[in-house]
Design a binder for these strands. Structure first.
Length: 717
DNA sequence: CTGGGATATT
DNA sequence: AATATCC
């Protein structure tokens, strides 16, 4: 069925040449790597006990096997299989408890750190995955590598690896070489095997990394992205589309990725909102402009436990105390002050078992937070008091209740930093880990929280029925806390964290490593090439009339981009005259997304639309070309091709799927024109973190100034 | 009773 | 402050 129709370049594309940009703009195409450690927990356990290597091994949490090594997999044990079933299939399965994540966490950060030592743009996804934007590294290497020397390392999706000529894809080829080097580094330095995906976006890199499973890597050529996307068994396989979204999509009749690609954007937007509707359709089309956002220390620390049943307040207290003890210990080592505590629980009586978590959170009084990181034993009883109040907000203890999970989370981590000489203190760091002797005072009293009497220690929002005055107090306290929270220490010291971690890891590294274009970026480089402030995104972009410019500008830049890229001339118009083929009914043959194409082509070509829905792929392609040409036209000489009512120099209303299938030259050209933003280190602005921060910064406060003790996340030893 | 996290959005 | 998503 799925013949690889998209392999050959249509002669028709030649029309697009525009000779304007031979290959000059290659600069704008990213090379993104995705690394995925093989059965991570199992690997860690095998490192801790090498004798396990030859045996079928399962890592057990509660009564399930969360992951297992490949020996076990050969015996048909799978991830997330119940212990009982696993033992039936493989009686000699060796089980190791994996509920304590400490070791996994430690090694996980070592992996990130190692990757960062090659290239600073690393984003973590869970404990066992990392994205790396190696675009600059690739650029550098291209300079002293002749294309004829290039070839792909590892697999090439949809091709017989060795027979692929590098041709247009030299950057990806270089990326595949870098991926191989990094994987080798992970293996030789940390003893971990991994898979890697090489592509032009996070989405694609992640999806392709699993194409060949244990310990291999795969590169995706842009021309194969549609094939990849359409190979997915359903929308839930698209990262970024989760359970909730899938449920809503089903109601709409959207059950396959293809359905989603073809579904009328208008209807998606109605269901999911402007930004999200577009986002998920873009994703389904294999389009993802989101940047690789560098990892930092965790933004929250939490601890949880699940169980068959807890139904008395006593049990809750004792479980919460348990959680608080371990959490406080971790928090203490971290050194930052948590400003918020949250309790989450799951009730046994939840329809779907899934997602019935409920939570309540409140501020932590500062004196209590201090005690946590001081290692003062009094912290736990005080926190227990607070948490139990949260509990009573969630559960009426008068009625019977039945809980199956409790989670306590510290968040809003404040770096109380000396800022000044963060760098020098960095070198003196002594992984303090503090011999805080924990006095296990399981305070059973709930009221003990306050002891002194300043306003600010009045109990925070925990009371159930609070008076207005309490609320006032609360506000007061909150603002007090946050204003005092703003540790100065803007830029200079702030660059520190990653750089420092970086320097350290590099220092300790044998120089045998391939090439390492280590950081040279803290300065102008990043800022110059990357970030032209969001605000002056070119002369204020021409937005469709129904879009509030302020709202638009408040969005993250890549979202703005994706919006701009997909604003369709027809969109703003109430033309309901276009009807969409029922997605389910739509025979899925044509390779292009008719629906969007329809909108693009809009008014002028509306007459073609009905034909398109009849699978006249020739016409579709023809139409696409027209669209692209007009785009191009617009870009080049600002002449509006069609209906003048639309935006003269609005960036292209380009269909994402169509775009993704354009020859890479053309993609380059277009992207360059659209001001493709390059990923940048988001070194925080010098804003004193006043609570306003109008625009959503993706990585808020933690980025600003880092306490040197945070280095342990990257330098556990 | 599929775990124990973590992050981002509203 | 609560929810959705990811691993």
């Amino acid at each position: 069925m799925d013949s690889g129709e998209e392999e050959e370049e249509e002669p028709g594309w030649g029309v697009m040449e525009t000779g304007v940009v031979g290959g000059a703009v290659e600069d704008s195409q990213r090379v993104i790597l995705h690394f995925d450690l093989d059965c991570f927990y199992a690997q860690v356990e095998m490192i801790r006990n090498p004798a396990l290597r030859s045996k079928p091994l399962g890592v057990q949490q509660k009564y399930i096997i969360v992951t297992c090594n490949y020996v076990a997999r050969e015996r048909s044990v799978t991830k997330l299989m119940g212990v009982k079933e696993a033992l039936e299939k493989c009686p000699d399965l060796v089980l190791v408890k994996g509920e304590d994540l400490t070791h996994y966490r430690d090694i996980s950060y070592k992996v990130t750190e190692l990757l960062m030592s090659f290239c600073p743009l690393v984003e973590r996804l869970g404990f066992d995955e990392n994205f790396v934007d190696v675009s600059e590294m690739v650029e550098t290497r291209m300079k002293d590598t002749s294309i004829s020397d290039l070839s792909f390392v590892g697999h090439v999706y949809g091709h017989e690896a060795s027979s692929v000529e590098v041709g247009d894809h030299s950057r990806l080829a270089v990326g595949s070489a870098i991926a191989a080097e990094l994987r080798e580094a992970l293996r030789s330095r940390l003893g971990l095997t991994s898979c890697a995906g090489v592509a032009t976006s996070k989405l694609l890199a992640k999806l392709v990394s699993g194409a060949f499973k244990p310990n291999q890597q795969t590169t995706l050529l842009p021309q194969s992205s549609a094939e990849l996307m359409n190979s997915l068994s359903g929308p839930c396989k698209v990262p970024g589309i989760g359970y909730r979204t899938v449920e809503k999509l089903k109601v709409l009749g959207v059950v396959s990725v293809r359905d989603l690609q073809l579904f009328p954007l208008r209807d998606l937007i109605r269901e999911f909102g402007e930004v999200n509707g577009r986002r998920i359709q873009n994703l389904a089309c294999g389009v993802d402009l989101s940047p690789v956002t560098p990892a930092g220390p965790p933004q929250s620390l939490s601890d949880e436990d699940s169980f068959k049943k807890i139904s008395t307040v006593r049990e809750v207290q004792s479980k919460v105390t348990e959680l608080l003890n371990s959490l406080c210990e971790r928090m203490c080592k971290d050194g930052r002050l948590p400003q918020t505590v949250r309790l989450t629980l799951r009730r046994a009586s939840a329809p779907s078992r899934w997602f019935s978590r409920e939570s309540r959170q409140c501020p932590i009084p500062k004196h209590t937070a201090q005690k946590i990181i001081t290692g003062c034993g009094e912290a736990v009883p005080q926190l227990l008091s607070i948490v139990m109040k949260l509990f009573h907000k969630l559960v009426n203890a008068g009625d019977p209740f039945h809980l199956t999970l409790l989670n306590v989370c510290f968040s809003n981590l404040q770096t109380k930093n000396s800022g000044r000489n963060a760098i020098s203190s960095f070198f003196t760091h002594t992984t303090t880990s503090a011999a805080h002797t924990h006095v296990q005072e399981t305070g059973t009293e709930l009221g003990v929280c306050e002891e002194s009497s300043s306003i600010t220690q009045a109990n925070p929002a925990c009371g159930t029925q609070n008076t207005e005055s309490t609320k006032e107090l609360l506000k007061c306290q909150t603002s007090t806390a946050s204003s005092s929270a703003s540790s100065a220490s803007p830029s200079s010291a702030s660059s520190s964290f990653f750089q420092n971690a970086l320097l350290q890891s590099i220092r300790s590294k044998p120089s045998t490593s391939p090439r390492q274009p280590v950081s040279k970026h803290s300065g102008p480089k990043t800022t110059s090439s990357g970030r032209s402030s969001t605000l002056e995104t070119q002369k204020s972009p021409k937005l469709p009339p129904h879009v509030d410019p302020d709202v638009f500008q408040a969005l993250p830049e890549h979202i703005q981009k994706e919006l701009m890229a997909s604003f369709q001339t027809g969109d703003a118009l109430p033309e309901d005259s276009i009807e969409n083929p029922s997605p389910v009914a739509a025979p899925a043959r044509a390779e292009r997304p008719e629906q969007q194409t329809q909108a693009h082509i809009n008014q002028k070509q509306t007459s073609q639309l009905s034909q398109i829905s009849l699978n006249q792929s020739h016409q579709i392609e023809h139409s696409n070309i027209n669209v692209a040409q007009s785009q191009n036209h617009n870009l080049c000489d600002s002449s509006s091709t069609e209906s003048a009512i639309s935006l003269p120099d609005v960036p292209p209303n380009v269909d994402p799927l169509v775009f993704s299938q354009l020859p890479s030259d053309m993609q380059n050209e277009l992207l360059a024109e659209w001001k493709q933003r390059k990923p940048t280190l988001k070194i925080s602005s010098t804003k004193p973190a006043t609570k306003q921060s109008a625009s959503r910064d993706h990585r808020p406060a933690a980025r600003a100034s880092q306490n040197n003790s945070l280095l342990k996340y990257f330098k556990p030893n």
